Amino acid sequence: MSIQRALKIHNQDKWTWLYIAFIILFVSFLFGLTIAVFIPGDDKIMITGFSYIFVYMFVMGVTGFSQTFAYAMGMSVRRTDYWMSMAIMGLRSSLLFTIIFVFLALIENWTNGWGNQLIFFHFPYLNDGNIFKQFIVYFMGFANFFFLGLLISIFAKRYTLKGLLILGLAFLFSITLAVLLITYFEVWMDLFQWFVQHTAFQLSIWFIPLTLFYMTASFLIIRKTAV
């Protein structure tokens, strides 16, 4: 099956899909731990370790497509199968990083910040719920960022830089209009209170329709994307 050939292409690039992310995470954690060791005091030191992987998943969605699409088409892989292979890789990576973060968050909590008051994996608010809720929060976050990057990359390939520029301008216009309306009707405080009243788990549920939209849109666009 062509989907297996596509997966083989991705699996050969373990540096991009795994090793680089682990190196980034390890170096950033080591940096944070060093700061915690050499800075005296009882105050907790907070470094958002999850943000590095969120950004990396977005980058993987963008570069994973741009680096392998033409090659996969040359290997006679169907566009549908290629998209499926990208989706599998993205979901698999999201699952792997989620397991790692939840597991290390438990250890960090048990060891009181690795014995140095460091907050790197067990982040306030995001890790307030039970293990299942923490799992959903991180998994949906990683998956959302990956498929957003994939959609942008496929959209840019299909509609070129001009189409991407138009999309970007339309997005900025929508954001600007939303800010003006919120300011005009003075609902900033209501919006802030709405976020405060919801847990990270409850907010992460909103990622589900967004992620499904990114997946559906990227799937429909790639079917008509030229090499």
Rank of each mutant, 00 (worst) to 15 (best):
T80F: 11
T80E: 12
D81N: 13
Y82Q: 02
Y82M: 00
Y82F: 13
W83P: 07
W83M: 12
M84C: 09
M84V: 15
S85G: 06
S85E: 02
M86Q: 14
M86G: 07
M86S: 14
M86R: 12
A87H: 03
A87S: 11
A87E: 05
A87R: 07
A87K: 02
A87F: 10
A87V: 12
I88A: 13
I88E: 04
I88Y: 09
M89V: 13
M89A: 11
M89I: 14
G90H: 04
G90R: 10
L91W: 08
R92D: 09
R92W: 11
R92G: 13
S93I: 06
S94W: 04
S94Q: 05
L95N: 05
L95T: 09
L95F: 13
L95Q: 01
L96F: 15
L96Q: 09
L96S: 07
F97S: 04
F97H: 02
F97P: 05
F97C: 04
F97M: 11
F97T: 02
T98Q: 09
T98E: 03
T98W: 01
T98A: 00
T98G: 08
I99A: 11
I99F: 14
I99Y: 03
I99C: 05
I100G: 01
I100T: 08
I100R: 00
I100F: 06
I100Q: 02
I100H: 00
I100V: 12
F101D: 08
F101M: 05
F101N: 10
V102E: 00
V102I: 06
V102T: 08
V102H: 02
V102K: 01
V102P: 05
F103C: 03
F103I: 13
F103R: 00
F103E: 00
L104E: 04
A105Y: 00
A105V: 05
A105M: 00
A105S: 15
L106F: 12
L106R: 08
I107V: 14
I107H: 05
E108W: 08
N109W: 07
N109M: 08
N109D: 14
N109S: 15
W110C: 02
W110D: 07
T111K: 07
T111E: 07
N112M: 12
N112Q: 15
W114S: 11
W114N: 06
W114I: 09
G115S: 10
N116K: 14
N116W: 10
N116T: 15
Q117S: 13
Q117A: 13
Q117V: 03
Q117G: 11
L118V: 05
L118T: 05
I119V: 15
I119S: 09
I119Y: 10
F120S: 09
F120C: 03
F121L: 01
F121Y: 15
H122N: 15
H122F: 10
H122M: 06
H122E: 08
H122W: 09
F123R: 06
F123W: 10
F123G: 04
P124R: 03
P124L: 03
P124Q: 08
Y125K: 10
Y125R: 11
Y125N: 12
Y125W: 10
L126Q: 12
L126C: 01
N127Q: 13
N127M: 13
N127E: 05
D128H: 06
D128S: 13
D128C: 02
D128F: 04
G129T: 10
G129W: 12
G129C: 07
N130F: 12
N130I: 10
N130S: 07
N130C: 03
I131A: 06
I131V: 14
I131P: 11
F132K: 03
F132G: 02
F132H: 05
F132N: 03
F132I: 15
